[in-house]
């Protein structure tokens, strides 16, 4: 019933397979606080396109087509890999993206 993987491979942010029917495309990261969420959004803004439709759930798109969803009020961060990511590459790719997110947070604070 619970998620199958939990890992701190991203440095600051943990990575956990999220609920979905998309075979390892959706990954939840550990929660960040409100200040970190703002910093994360700011840090990603150079490389990611902001495609948010609402202030209450922000969606940023990676140049490779992956999305990062951030809930500012709770600090929830979710990685949505592009559907063309090969099956065997999905976990590695999620680790790579969470690494970028952690870098954007400058890895200076424990989560």
């Amino acid at each position: 019933m619970l998620a199958t993987r939990e890992d701190d491979s991203g440095g600051c942010l943990t990575l956990r397979l999220a609920h979905s029917c998309y075979r390892h495309l959706i990954w939840d990261c550990g929660l960040v606080n409100e200040e970190q969420a703002a910093r994360l959004l700011s840090g990603l803004s150079r490389r990611y396109a902001d495609e948010s439709r609402f202030a209450w759930v922000r969606e940023l798109t990676h140049p490779d087509g992956h999305s990062i969803v951030v809930v500012p009020r709770t600090g929830r961060v979710q990685i949505r890999l592009h559907y063309l990511t090969p099956h065997g590459e999905r976990e590695r790719c999620a680790r790579q993206v969470v690494g970028e997110l952690s870098a954007a947070l400058r890895c200076c604070e424990p989560v």
Binding site: H19, W56, V57, V69, T74
Partner: peptide, 15 residues
């Protein structure tokens, strides 16, 4: 169930 577990729900309604 999928809606309740989504970040969109969390953003709109809360945890």
């Amino acid at each position: 169930g999928g809606i309740l577990l989504s970040p969109e729900w969390e953003g709109l309604v809360g945890p």
